[in-house]
Design a protein around this nucleic acid. Structure first.
Lengths: 139, 139
DNA sequence: TAACATTGCATAGCTTGCTATTCAAGTGAA
DNA sequence: TTCACTTGAATAGCAAGCTATGCAATGTTA
C-alpha cells in the first residue's frame, strides 16, 4: 500500500509546501532554492555549470532562471568569450535574503526530523543517498 | 548541502521517472497511479471519497480524473442521489493493466531499495512515515 | 576554408502539484 | 418556503518537472 515511491512523493511535496510558506515572504519559491544555493556559493557562472552542479535538466534550469530574472534575483551578462553562453549574477536582493533563506530551510528540516535521534537522522540521509545512487546507476 | 529536503525532492523525481518509463507502455502515467490503486480496490466512488483516501488536493484530483477519462481509463456516471457528485468507474482497459502496473511499481521499488537489507527497508519506510507525520502535525 | 558536428540555451508542449475562486446542488433554520 | 450556509466539483492561473526540438555560435576536419 504505502510503497517507498508513494511515501517519497508525499514527503517531497510536504517539504516543498513547508519551504514554500516559509520563504514566500522573502520573495522566492522552492524551485529557486537549489539555484540560489549554488549561486550564493559562486556566481558569475554559466547555465551549463549550474546544471552540472544540480540534479536538474537543462530545460528546467532555463525556465527557472527566467523566472528568477523576472523576480529580480539574478542578472545575465554576455559571456566574455562565448557568445552562446551568459554569466549569471546574483542581485543585491538575492544576496540580502541569504541568511533568512538558510534559516527557513533549516527550520523545515528540523521540523521534519524533529522526532529523530542524531543517529537516525544520519541513517535517514544515508538511506536517501543510497536510493538515489541505486536509481541513477546505469545497469 | 545535501539536506533532507533536497534529497527527498531528488529521490521522488527519480521514483517518478523510473515509474514513468515502465508504465508508459501501459498507457498510464505516474500521477494516475494513486487514483488507479484506490479504484482497483473499489470503484463506483465519488471524487470526494477518492480525495479522502489519497493525500492530494481536490483540484489536483479533478484534473487527474479528467486526463484519465480522456485516456480511456475511467468513466463517470451520475450519482444516484446527489446531482453534484458523480461515480467513477474503471474501464476494461484500466482493469486489464492492473497486474502489469503492480509489477512495474514493484520493479521500481525493488530497484530503489536493491542494496537494502530487510531491516533497513522497514526502517526506511518507517522513517519516511515519521517525517510525513511530523510535517502534517498541526502545531 | 567550406561543410559538418557539437554545444549552449531557448522554446514548445505536457504532467502533476498547489491555492483561490466559482457555481450549482443540497441542507437547515427562521 | 425562502434565504443563507455548506458542499462537490470544475476552472483559472501558476510553479516546477520532463522530453523533444530548434537555432545560432563554436569547433573540427577533409
Amino acid at each position: 500500500m504505502k510503497s517507498a515511491g508513494y511515501l517519497a512523493n508525499h514527503m517531497a511535496r510536504l517539504f516543498a509546501q513547508g519551504l514554500h510558506e516559509r520563504i514566500a515572504p522573502l520573495g522566492i519559491v522552492p524551485g529557486q532554492f537549489p539555484a540560489l544555493l549554488a549561486l550564493w556559493e559562486r556566481d558569475g557562472v554559466t547555465q551549463k555549470e549550474l546544471v552540472a552542479r544540480l540534479d536538474i535538466e537543462q530545460a528546467t534550469m532555463a525556465n527557472t532562471l527566467t523566472r528568477m530574472e523576472r523576480d529580480g534575483l539574478i542578472r545575465r551578462t554576455k559571456h566574455p568569450s562565448d557568445a552562446r553562453a551568459q554569466q549569471i549574477w546574483l542581485t543585491a536582493k538575492a544576496r540580502g535574503i541569504r541568511d533568512q533563506a538558510y534559516e527557513a530551510a533549516n527550520t523545515v528540516n528540523s521540523r521534519a526530523l524533529g522526532g529523530f535521534s542524531e543517529k537516525e537522522r544520519a541513517q535517514f540521509l544515508d538511506f536517501m543517498g543510497r536510493v538515489i545512487d541505486s536509481m541513477q546507476a546505469k545497469d
